[in-house]
Design a protein around this nucleic acid. Structure first.
Lengths: 331, 331
DNA sequence: CTGAAAGCGCTTACAG
DNA sequence: CTGAAAGCGCTTACAG
């Protein structure tokens, strides 16, 4: 080991690097040598020698969705920083069975922990259970708490409530809502957040102002159109995600309904879309990249402590969200 | 090594796995043992022992653009399959100097090859030169050949020409073009492809039908609007990318210009956007995920052969593109 | 607090 | 074609 250049044993270098108790002189010498030689620890050697494996598996829908992009980004950024290797297995969206196969494949390849994507992870959990994984697992970007799984997520209920209250504060009363089908995990918190805000401020929820759609632009366009064609249309529409919200924007444009003058529109997720439409879309930001980094960090910590004590239950990390008010609500 | 379970030496297992000449009996015994034990080679050990390093560094703009998502996806998929480790360094778009720093950082961390993203990679190349990297480098998704760098890309010139010819074949003569500023590498091939097709079919290029914009929806909206407000507006508009094309779609909607009845619109890149607008957008598909996988494979091969012979010059892999004709052109 | 010993699972370079 | 030897760069578990 080159850093014995400092006149000390390789062991001492290892000790310094790993934060073992060392003398000040020792530390200084080692750090000087490291600096001078531009030394960087060899990950492969470290992985081989240490009992603790540092491979994390990732289930990933092979799509180009901005949220997926951010997830991958955050995971790989953390992996690079922490020296863990990432293994990616593609999944096909509704096929939960294939998910379990992929998890098994990852474990066979040495993954000591698994990172699960939103929706798919939650659906696997409700179909299976944590024990099936037999290793630390985190579902990143889960819409809500998952009974059997650790999560890193925002409080979507609170976010939906806040954004609805923001709309009420801007003077809206007839606030339409585009909900997701109930089978999707993201349905409940966003919908209930909307309801809670309406109730709390004594605003009546008109059934005619509620429409359902399944994620996509076209569904937002159609559902938004139905609401706008009402004899007494809403003055604001809160869509369960950005794609549907951009559909609403298009529905308004087609009908010459001015946004935000005659109609305010709000989305959810604040993806790349939100700022590539006109007018720029108010949306709830889900900091997926940071959440995914956090998930990798926590997974690594869990892996390392598994050898030692505390096999605790699932934990939830709830990170703060922000609401970006933009021109689509007159901001 | 567990697979000596087969009653042979670890060396033989290694030979079998690495395709060294072995007897049939040997191979059978080893494969049986592998099967039985569910054995998977330890990447870390392999990396440590082999002279050939298997770490590839990746410069990456930390954005949520669908093309970035696909790039990351493809790279990580190939990395998982080939057992190479990926290191990611975030870059900030126009700061080429930071790019060189990041490359140095990656090399220090053990990266034996570098994967460069579109635009940024090409701009670094024209500002620096291959020798600066001192290792195999590929610029994935480059718009055109790069004199000093290997590339994996589509023939954007040909694609732009084809799509323009498709428009001509559909009866259009007044075909507008939204070009990128000349400083961006993607400008030239797309623009020249358009010009070549027009010339080839004897269709006059009207200067008034050419507008310039810088990638974003808003720019497409504005530039598209200018063309549509002309006394004699174009019947088709070819935008240099999907964001601008969706801007054109919005500009048409605002003016109640029916797409595709009165106006056809074409984009470039065929990102997630193209199918999340109305009408679905005709666009040139850049298979970024597959291209990025290919780039990782080639980089690995180059790393392995570097120890041996042939330090050849930069190579270009041109993969086939497809044009997805959709409703925005009446298909 | 420090370091000599042994080993992580593979491969290279070589001898049979 | 096959395998005994040595070593990749680190760490664990221990003795000083």
């Amino acid at each position: 080991m080159v850093a014995a250049h400092a006149g000390v044993s390789p062991m001492s270098v290892s000790n310094v690097l790993n934060g073992q108790p060392t003398s000040v002189a020792m530390r200084a010498a080692v750090h000087a040598a490291i600096e001078e030689l531009g030394y960087v620890p060899n990950l492969a050697a470290r992985q081989l020698a240490s009992a603790a494996p540092t491979i994390i598996g990732l289930l990933h829908a092979n799509d180009e969705h901005p949220v997926s992009a951010a997830l991958l980004n955050g995971a790989l950024t953390a992996a690079t920083r922490l020296g863990v290797q990432l293994l990616l297995e593609p999944i096909v969206f509704p096929e939960l069975a294939s998910g379990w196969e992929k998890v098994a494949a990852l474990r066979r390849r040495g993954a000591a922990a698994i990172l699960l994507p939103p929706t798919f992870g939650e659906m696997m959990a409700s179909a299976g259970g944590r024990e099936e994984f037999e290793c630390p697992v985190i579902c990143v970007g889960a819409a809500d708490e998952v009974p059997t799984l650790s999560t890193v997520r925002i409080d979507e209920f609170a976010a939906a409530q806040e954004v609805t209250e923001g709309l009420i504060a801007r003077g809206h009363r007839r606030i339409g809502f585009l909900r997701l089908p109930a089978k999707f995990p993201a349905h409940a918190p966003r919908w209930h957040g909307y309801l809670a805000a309406m109730r709390r401020h004594g605003v009546t929820v008109e059934p005619e102002l509620i429409a359902e759609g399944e994620f996509w632009f076209q569904e937002g366009l159609a559902a938004g159109g139905r609401l706008l064609d009402l004899p007494d249309p809403p003055t604001a529409i809160f869509a369960s995600n950005d794609e549907m919200a951009t559909g609403v924007l298009a529905a308004a444009q087609i009908r010459r309904v001015a946004v935000p003058k005659e109609l305010s529109v709000v989305g959810f997720e604040d993806t790349y879309f939100a700022q590539n439409v006109w007018p720029p879309l108010t949306s709830v930001k889900i900091p997926m990249s940071a959440m995914s980094s956090t998930a990798v960090e926590r997974l690594l910590r869990e892996i390392r402590s598994v050898a030692k004590p505390s096999p605790s239950g699932p934990t939830s990390v709830v990170v703060p969200h922000t609401i970006n008010w933009r021109a689509s609500t007159g901001d």
